[in-house]
């Protein structure tokens, strides 16, 4: 292969058709409360970890729903499982179990 001094940029869009929905399908069974998230961000605002590191717990459900597994894997590891987000969530999404169940599903995939 020839070198021209540049490489072909990778697309940064979310290609929903190609993304992997297996983790999402696992979650629909094991923590269906995730379906009711309205992305209000109150979880992120109160999150202990998110005050100090680049962690957005609201984004966890968004990435899950889009099937964006690679960034999701990185994101779930940042949660400290303190449970403050569950206390605040207006829709009663069980975020602790969400994080754990996502981890379980990811582990299963590997």
């Amino acid at each position: 292969m020839k070198e021209f001094g540049y490489t072909v940029h990778k697309e940064r869009l979310i290609d929903y058709d190609r993304n992997d929905k297996r983790v999402l399908n696992h979650l629909k069974k094991h923590e269906p409360s995730v379906l009711t998230c309205i992305a209000c961000g109150s979880c992120t605002a109160t999150c202990s970890a998110g005050q100090l590191v680049d962690f957005n717990i609201r984004l966890v459900q968004t990435l899950l729903r889009r099937g964006e597994i690679e960034p999701l894997k990185k994101e779930v590891r940042k949660c400290m499982l303190c449970g403050k987000c569950i206390l605040i969530c207006p829709r009663g999404v069980n975020m602790r179990n969400l994080i754990l169940a996502i981890q379980t599903a990811i582990d299963k995939l590997q």
């Binding site: 940064r12 869009l13 979310i14 290609d15 929903y16 058709d17 968004t62 964006e68």
Partner: peptide
Amino acid sequence: DTLTSRPLKM
């Protein structure tokens, strides 16, 4: 997808 700030195709 304004919640991830990325373009999305479907």
